[in-house]
Design a protein around this nucleic acid. Structure first.
Length: 1026
RNA sequence: GGGCGGUUAGCUCAGCGGUAGAGCACUACGUUGACAUCGUAGUGGCCACUGGUUCGAUCCCAGUACCGCCCA
């Protein structure tokens, strides 16, 4: 059955995919002919994800590499998988439950909810896998991994326990990005900073005790421009509601305006007058003298910069909000809290973290208000009291036409960068909370050294600078999330019963002890003890040890797990009460509860390389494929994922996870803008695949992938590469029509005699070297372009045309063989980029030992390159180009076959012409060729190396036009030769330049001069016609 | 404000010491033994600017301008 006119991608892709899968073509080690391995870990997409152009690009690059290496006979593994995407998944499932009218998460309870999540995962978690398959991604799908799989889960927990035991993980109160919608800490990555229209309010903080000072402003020359007596310090803020938690006012140490009041106290101008807090005026490098008033309020618990200032200066940080971003309503009455805070500010009372955390400095009338409501009220209250900074505004009364000067609050409208949760879309609140951290400073050095010492290479190199910059300034990594879906932190807490020696173990538990424990303050006020282990069973010993010092039989109480601290207190109380009555020690229990938080998804995906290979078991795969070879990922997650994988793998197994990191940019639209639903410029890769085929999309991706390049995807381009697939298809169809494939099996390069055949074989060899070099260097664009230039520019444009006359001649057989081989090479070398069409052509065109996906990648090189053939065919194609060009410019009808005169051919030219006469005749539309002593009058002249050709067209050509044509090309040549001659005449050039450069320049000049002479002769000849 | 990039043909981008390339677009012609998802020919560039290094700079260095991205 003859081939169709075009490749039907839609029909073929599904069929070919199914075949690959059925054959296990992508299994680890498939087609391996050497021991050397090549392994890529897929950057795990979210299990909730669906394929976007970023995935399409990222996975195309990986697939190109893995297919190329697989064909080369490496033992390859492309490990696929998904991560559990804590927040995203929880959100999706909660939404779905709401839509289905199911109870809310909190009402349902943790175990039931997690069951729902798993149900969802089983049903919908495979979406992206199927989409990746449509792209042709040749992952070992049977090994598909998931960060919540049992084995992976256990590995994550094991790492946590190990790092905890090494002191690399700790719990602490830190300022974190808090999402008030999801009520969890989130990572920096999950925060989008967006510029929004904001306001800057200016308020007066009165000095304590009505003190005054001389406030002066100066211009650049030091002249006083403003001088007044003030009893306040002016503060600018974009977040007035946080004033309630201010701990200080800071100014720059060099700011002379405020020098007189450093160290004094000022009053926060909000809240009940009687309990206004006084806070110190301190100096710190942070305030910018030129920004606002130069004085900054310091609210350590609600701003990242302030947090640093507060830490440096030991300023208390008062939390003002609850987990939903409303003003706190817990704690003691405001008057009491404010008094304590004042004592702290005065230095008369000590404070520690826990004490400060428990205090609620929100005045009663603000308690429970949403943060944005609170802001409005603070502004209104301060303004009402006259403590807003004001300015004079001129207004004109319309009725009386008289001018009025009016004082209005000074509020600047200014754009501010505001943090938003990327999923919740609510404003993120910096919050002081108890969180778990990885002490990154302790594990960062090996990750830095690995790149510094070249064991891991980041491409493009600019990525290394960014990597160093970030890691050298690394912050502790907050790894706890207040979610349910994820790896629950393997730490259990128990009540600290050995507190302050009240319970002595010298005697057994008596009634006094029990009452002491049960009294309201007894257990609640006590701290907790914590232990970390992989399971509840494993953690119990730790608690036994803690309890060793407390009285019998409590020290031997059975350890039970309860929900939380509250339940623990109740359980212990009940147990003690029961014991007090029946004195039966066998019923005594010591309750512990597990930390409810889960780990940041990045913590688990940080273990992706070893986790997917079966660590901590020393699996065959782990031994074989780890460390892996390349990680292909987006620049945007260099810190969040790549750097963390480096740190984690080095911390856990002491090896770099990969030797090369290939970073790429975000895929944008054709104008370079980010794709977004609101902009409406989103390109759906699957729609593209439907319309143009996966191969066209993939080729486009490869072609865009210059190192460090901006990725601008345009549909026009994709269309262009779809055309390229058609071109290849039709070249093969042409071959089919000419019997090229008859009896063809995958072959060795044919022993060809004809220069044309030797030439195209040489071109194939050259291309193979170029493609390999490009892929070795991760220059996918170079590989794609080299293939495009070879397949279209050499094979289709020239070789297929050359073959047409040869099929009728003596060399028809070798030409058929050569064409079959050359087209095979096109298919093979294109396969990593365009797997579908090449697999289809492979099956259609000959008898094949193996499917394309497992066909051996060529290794031929220099031995196939015939320099003489290349030179000769370049001369031939150049001659044909020149004749065609001259004909077109002289308006010789395309259909008109003409006679060609050969003038003064040297031996080389003569031989070249004779050997390729048929091709030249056909492509340049020549009827006949005759030798002539000279160019006759009224002919078109074409100068070539070692020859002059002429087409006699007396009476047909426009002499003036031919003169103009020749003059133009001569002028261009003369200009170029002028440059070359200038260089050669410069003695310094001849002295300093490399000898081969000088030689090359001489040759170019000689050839150019020769051509000029020929054109000159032609012009002279033309001049004789009149 | 700090860091990292970019500025080359109308557009999208390669090239990064030896005097400029591709694809697309554009113009003209064209049913030449596969392909109109095509063919042939053609137009198009002070390689952002200013200095420096060099025999020689689009390429290396310094500065300027503008444009991105990341982090504050």
């Amino acid at each position: 059955m003859p081939m169709e006119k075009t490749f039907d991608a839609a029909e073929a892709e599904a069929r070919i995919s199914a075949k690959w899968e059925a054959d296990g073509a992508f299994r680890a080690g498939a087609n391996a002919s050497k021991d050397e391995t090549f392994c890529i870990m897929i950057p795990p997409p979210n299990v909730t994800g669906s394929l976007h152009v970023g995935h399409a690009f990222n996975n195309t690059i990986q697939d190109i590499l893995i297919r190329w290496k697989r064909m080369q006979g490496y033992d390859t593994l492309w490990q696929p998988g998904q991560d559990h995407a804590g927040i995203a998944t929880q959100l999706v499932v909660e939404r779905q439950m709401a839509a289905a009218g199911l109870p809310k998460r909190v009402d349902m309870g943790r175990p039931a909810f997690l069951e729902k999540v798993w149900e969802w995962k089983e049903e919908s978690g495979g979406t992206i896998v199927n989409q990746l398959k449509r792209l042709g991604a040749s992952c070992d799908w049977e090994r598909n991994a998931f960060t919540m799989d049992e084995g992976f889960h256990d590995a994550v927990i094991k790492v946590f326990v190990e790092m905890y035991n090494k002191g690399q993980i700790y719990r602490g109160k830190r300022l974190v990005n808090w999402d008030p919608h999801f009520e969890t800490a989130i990572s920096d990555l999950e925060v989008e900073n967006i510029e929004v229209a904001g306001h800057m309010w200016h308020f007066k903080y009165p000095l304590a005790g009505g003190e005054t000072y001389e406030y002066m402003e100066r211009d650049e020359d030091g002249n006083v421009t403003l001088r007044e007596t003030r009893d306040y310090i002016s503060i600018a803020t974009t977040r007035p509601e946080t004033m309630l938690g201010d701990g200080a006012v800071a100014v720059h140490p060099s700011d002379e305006r405020y020098a007189p009041i450093i160290g004094k106290l000022c009053e926060i101008p909000v809240g009940p007058k009687a309990q206004r807090r006084l806070i110190p005026i301190i100096t710190d490098e942070y305030p910018d003298k030129n920004f606002g008033s130069g004085a900054v309020k310091i609210t350590g618990a609600h701003d990242f910069n302030d947090y640093q200032v507060a830490k440096r200066n030991n300023i208390p940080m008062y939390s003002l909000m609850d987990t939903r971003g409303a003003m706190r309503a817990d704690g003691r009455p405001y008057a009491e809290e404010a008094a304590t805070a004042q004592a702290i500010a005065n230095g008369t009372e000590d404070f520690d973290e826990a004490k400060i955390a428990a205090m609620n400095l929100v005045p009663e009338e603000y308690r429970g208000l949403d943060r944005f409501e609170a802001r409005k009220k603070v502004i209104a209250d301060i303004t009402y009291e006259g403590l807003a900074v004001t300015k004079l505004v001129k207004s004109i009364d319309v009725e009386t036409n008289s001018e009025h000067l009016q004082l209005v609050p000074f509020v600047e409208d200014k754009p501010v960068m505001q943090p938003f949760g990327d999923r919740s879309k609510v404003v993120i609140e910096p919050m002081l909370t108890d969180q778990w951290f990885v002490d990154t400073a302790k594990i960062v050095e090996p990750a830095l050294d690995a790149v510094r010492q070249g064991r891991t290479k980041i491409m493009p190199e600019s990525g290394e600078k960014v990597y160093f910059h970030w890691l050298e300034n690394i912050e502790p990594w907050c790894i706890s999330r207040q979610l349910w879906w994820g790896h629950q932190i393997p730490v259990w807490y128990g009540l600290d019963l050995s507190y302050d020696g009240k319970l002595e173990d010298e005697e057994d538990l008596d009634e006094v002890d029990i009452l002491g424990l049960l009294l309201s303050d007894g257990m609640l006020q006590r701290g907790t003890v914590q232990h970390c282990a992989a399971s509840f069973e494993d953690v119990q010993n730790g608690f036994f040890d803690n309890n060793a010092d407390i009285p019998n039989p409590l020290s031997h109480a059975r350890i039970v797990e309860v929900a939380d601290k509250h339940a623990a207190i109740e359980t212990l109380a009940a147990s003690l009460a029961e014991y007090n009555v029946n004195q039966d020690p066998t019923h005594l229990v010591y309750p512990v509860w597990r930390d409810p938080d889960v780990l940041d998804t990045w913590f688990s995906s940080g273990l992706w390389p070893i986790g997917t290979l079966g660590w901590p078991n020393n699996t065959l795969e782990l031994q074989k494929y780890f460390p892996t070879n390349v990680l292909v990922t987006g620049q945007d997650i260099l810190f969040f994922w790549v750097a963390r994988m480096m740190m984690m793998q080095l911390a856990v197994v002491g090896q770099e996870p990969f030797d090369t990191v290939y970073l790429h940019q975000l895929v944008r639209d054709e104008k370079g803008e980010k794709m977004s639903k609101t902009r409406g410029n989103v390109i759906d890769p699957l729609v593209i695949v439907d319309e143009y085929g996966a191969d066209a999309l993939r080729f486009t991706m490869a072609q865009m992938a210059s190192l460090g390049g901006v990725l601008k995807l345009s549909e026009e381009r994709i269309k262009g590469y779809r055309n390229f697939t058609t071109k290849l298809w039709n070249a093969c169809r042409f071959a089919e029509m000419n019997g090229v494939w008859e009896g063809h099996a995958t072959s060795q390069p044919p022993q060809a005699e004809a220069r044309v055949n030797r030439w195209i074989i040489s071109e194939a060899a050259k291309t193979r070297a170029e493609v390999d070099a490009a892929l070795e260097a991760y220059r996918f664009n170079d590989a794609a372009n080299a293939l495009y230039a070879f397949v279209w520019g050499k094979v289709c444009d020239w070789y297929v045309e050359f073959a047409k006359p040869l099929f009728d001649g003596d060399q028809a057989d070798e030409t058929r063989k050569t064409m079959a081989w050359v087209l095979d090479q096109c298919m093979i070398m294109l396969h990593p980029i365009m797997p579908f069409i090449t697999e289809e052509l492979w099956a259609t065109t000959g008898t094949r030992a193996k499917p394309m996906v497992h066909t051996d990648w060529p290794t031929y090189g220099e031995e196939l390159i015939d320099a003489d053939a290349m030179r000769e065919m370049n001369w031939v194609t150049g001659l044909i180009d020149d004749i065609r060009s001259a004909r077109a410019q002289m308006h010789v009808p395309a259909g008109l076959k003409v006679n060609l005169l050969l003038v003064g051919l040297d031996d080389t030219a003569k031989a070249a012409f004779a050997a390729n006469e048929a091709l030249i005749f056909r492509l340049a539309r020549i009827e006949s060729a005759t030798e002539a002593a000279e160019v006759p009058k009224g002919a078109i002249t074409v100068a070539a190396e070692g020859a002059t050709f002429a087409i006699p067209l007396e009476g047909l050509i426009d002499v003036a036009e031919e003169k103009a044509r020749l003059t133009k090309s001569m002028e261009k040549l003369a200009k170029d030769m002028g440059g070359l001659r200038g260089r050669l005449n410069n003695p310094k050039f001849v002295e300093s330049a490399k000898p081969e450069v000088v030689e090359e320049t001489r040759e170019k000049l000689a050839l150019g001069d020769e051509e000029i002479a020929k054109i000159q002769a032609a012009l002279t000849r033309l001049g004789e016609i009149s």
